[in-house]
């Protein structure tokens, strides 16, 4: 059988998978490794529900061949909280009411995470640009934008205290 071997880190842990080459990163995460926090909304890169971080950058797992993850660090929504300690973005999404059906939430939070990593105090326009690839049909985005702003401020405060 025609298989490829790929090694990468997922949420800080080394992973080695041996799968058919046609397998996407999304299929590996959801089906082979059983992490279902990463969602599938279209399978064609048009909705952003499958967004994960590849070396800190937001990418679409449905359009990533697993071999393209070789040697890279992949972060999914399951990798954000440290035990029961939620990421500031997760806390802010809950506090600001930025979640409704929740299906876009993991991808949305990861897009925001990639933004805050590069730009801890983004403008509203920068936030809108960062999450424009993540469709949300429930919230109208308003509270999501507020949550990202809040998380950015909070991260900056934490950083200032450290």
């Amino acid at each position: 059988m025609n298989l490829v071997e790929v090694e990468f880190t997922l949420n800080g842990e080394r992973q080695k998978v041996i799968v058919p080459p046609r397998t996407t990163l999304l299929e590996v995460i959801r089906e082979h490794l059983g992490l279902t926090g990463t969602k599938k909304g279209c399978g064609k890169g048009e909705c952003g529900a499958c967004t994960v971080l590849l070396d800190g950058e937001a990418v679409l797992a449905c359009l990533t061949l697993i071999s393209q993850a070789e040697g890279h660090a992949v972060t999914t929504i399951e990798g954000l909280a440290k035990g029961e300690q939620l990421d500031p973005l997760q806390e802010a999404f809950i506090e600001e009411g930025a979640i409704q059906c929740g299906y876009c939430t993991p991808g949305m939070i990861l897009s925001a995470k990639a933004l805050l990593r590069k730009n801890p105090s983004p403008t509203q326009e920068e936030i809108k640009t960062a999450i424009a690839g993540n469709l949300c049909r429930c919230t109208g985005y308003v509270k999501i934008i507020k949550a990202v702003q809040k998380a950015g401020r909070r991260s900056a405060e934490v950083a200032a205290h450290d």
Binding site: G45, A58, V59, L60, L63, T64, I131, G133
Partner: peptide, 9 residues
Amino acid sequence: VGSTQIRNM
């Protein structure tokens, strides 16, 4: 181009 994710890829 597309979106942040598409531009990253």
